[in-house]
Amino acid sequence: MALNTPQITPTKKITVRAIGEELPRGDYQRCPQCDMLFSLPEINSHQSAYCPRCQAKIRDGRDWSLTRLAAMAFTMLLLMPFAWGEPLLHIWLLGIRIDANVMQGIWQMTKQGDAITGSMVFFCVIGAPLILVTSIAYLWFGNRLGMNLRPVLLMLERLKEWVMLDIYLVGIGVASIKVQDYAHIQAGVGLFSFVALVILTTVTLSHLNVEELWERFYPQRPATRRDEKLRVCLGCHFTGYPDQRGRCPRCHIPLRLRRRHSLQKCWAALLASIVLLLPANLLPISIIYLNGGRQEDTILSGIMSLASSNIAVAGIVFIASILVPFTKVIVMFTLLLSIHFKCQQGLRTRILLLRMVTWIGRWSMLDLFVISLTMSLINRDQILAFTMGPAAFYFGAAVILTILAVEWLDSRLLWDAHESGNARFDD
């Protein structure tokens, strides 16, 4: 018995066209964080690309023209004298008006014999932002004059995390709450300039795509075929072959399989920071003279006294001054041990922890910024005066060393310790 099946006739004509040209192939790229070699397709503007294995951002879609970056830099340069030299806060102490600005706080630190601690604050609040705007201006002028731009481009990517104007702005709020127990506070004209400078700096850093600047100024022929001998440069993120001198053909720094002496430098910085954190938390970090009496505060006791007036601000200072430094030390110690013992479990967790400490590390400088600003506000000789204690130097040095330890660690070593050939990683 035959089955009668109805015929289905399409209502619209289906047209099949042959592909007349070869589909576009992607360029081969190595991930600078996990060293995976993959094919990167062509990316349009405002599109980002991520590593298929570790999800690290390979290409950032946010990109401004150099002219727009230069305009932002010149605007920031105009704001800087007002943000640093004009009063941020006014207080009335014992019937006398006192003005506080950024430069005055750094000068008070240096004047009291601790120039190293003052230079830490100076670099993060004044030096690094000033280098940022002058570097962008150098790129703008240098591109037109045919100057060598490689050193500036190499420095810009590392400079971003040292620009800490946003953290200093939080420190202004913390210092205001600490001082309000002794005097009446009012915002100064410099505060508005400083807030504007923070906003412009944040926007500029978020749109400063150094890798795209490398592509514009020093374009290189990408690798179009897969080759395990391809290496990625950690300076400019170019994937290719080393030249005859073993250097990256684009930025001219040595092109090595792994960062040289990464573990040794990381261990040295980490152990030194552990040693410095002990006096930083045991010795007094601030000293207040009130009517001839002397009151010393460690980091913890200062947080407890701050909690009596504002528990939320005390929580912020606790996280930045105690929780973050010790968390960074514990995480980095764990990561280094996992590399030495070739741990194969929990790779995803370790990668996330490394990215976390990379982002939060700079916030530990908050305590030094609060001390710097408070020193310029309260300084009335023996009637009422505020000065920093010996722990300030140890704390600042420990924070900087932990930042350097994270920067010096080559994250690809975590993958080397893991089993080879993993296309995915999980716990």
Rank of each mutant, 00 (worst) to 15 (best):
N143T: 14
Y168Q: 04
V179R: 00
P284W: 08
V195F: 11
S420E: 08
T11Y: 06
R355V: 15
N209R: 14
Q244K: 14
G396Q: 02
K12A: 07
I106C: 03
R260I: 08
I360K: 00
T387A: 06
D181P: 00
L337C: 13
R30D: 02
N379H: 03
T349Q: 13
L66W: 05
V102Q: 07
D27S: 11
G142T: 07
K178R: 01
A100E: 05
N291K: 13
L69D: 04
S305P: 02
P219T: 15
M155Q: 14
A18R: 06
T334R: 14
G361H: 04
R68Q: 04
W107H: 15
G127M: 02
G396C: 03
T117G: 04
S45F: 08
Q382T: 07
E296V: 08
V152G: 03
C124R: 00
T75E: 02
E228I: 11
R256W: 09
A417K: 11
C343A: 12
C124K: 04
I330D: 01
D367Y: 00
Q29W: 08
G95V: 00
V370N: 00
E22Q: 10
T387P: 00
A269T: 08
L404M: 13
L347A: 14
L169P: 05
A196C: 15
A385T: 07
G61V: 09
K328D: 00
E86Q: 03
K342R: 12
A385W: 01
P279L: 14
S176H: 06
I322F: 13
M147P: 02
A175H: 01
L79E: 03
V399F: 05
V152K: 01
L277E: 09
T5N: 08
I14Y: 10
I371F: 13
D367K: 00
Y28F: 10
K111E: 13
A56Q: 04
R144S: 13
I371D: 00
I322R: 01
A196K: 03
L282Q: 12
N281I: 10
C266P: 09
L208E: 08
A128Y: 01
F74K: 12
G240Q: 11
F194I: 12
L335W: 03
Y218Q: 09
T5R: 12
G235V: 03
E86Y: 01
S420Y: 07
A83P: 05
R144I: 12
L69S: 10
E215I: 13
F395I: 06
L270R: 01
G146F: 03
L69V: 07
Q264M: 03
V125T: 07
G346Q: 14
D367T: 00
V121C: 08
P390W: 06
P222S: 13
G113P: 08
K265R: 05
E228K: 12
G292L: 14
I285H: 00
N143S: 15
H252A: 06
E157M: 09
M356I: 09
L69A: 11
R350E: 12
S364Q: 00
S376Q: 05
T402W: 09
S176P: 02
C266I: 03
E21I: 06
E419Y: 15
I253P: 04
V125P: 05
N379F: 01
A391Y: 02
L130P: 12
F38P: 02
S376P: 02
D243C: 09
S193W: 02
T201C: 13
L94Q: 00
A312P: 13
N44K: 14
I185W: 03
I378E: 00
D60I: 06
D227Y: 14
I303D: 03
G421E: 02
A223P: 12
E212R: 15
L37V: 07
Q104E: 05
Q345D: 13
D181G: 03
L323S: 10
M72I: 05
D297R: 01
P87T: 07
I177A: 05
G20W: 05
Y168G: 07
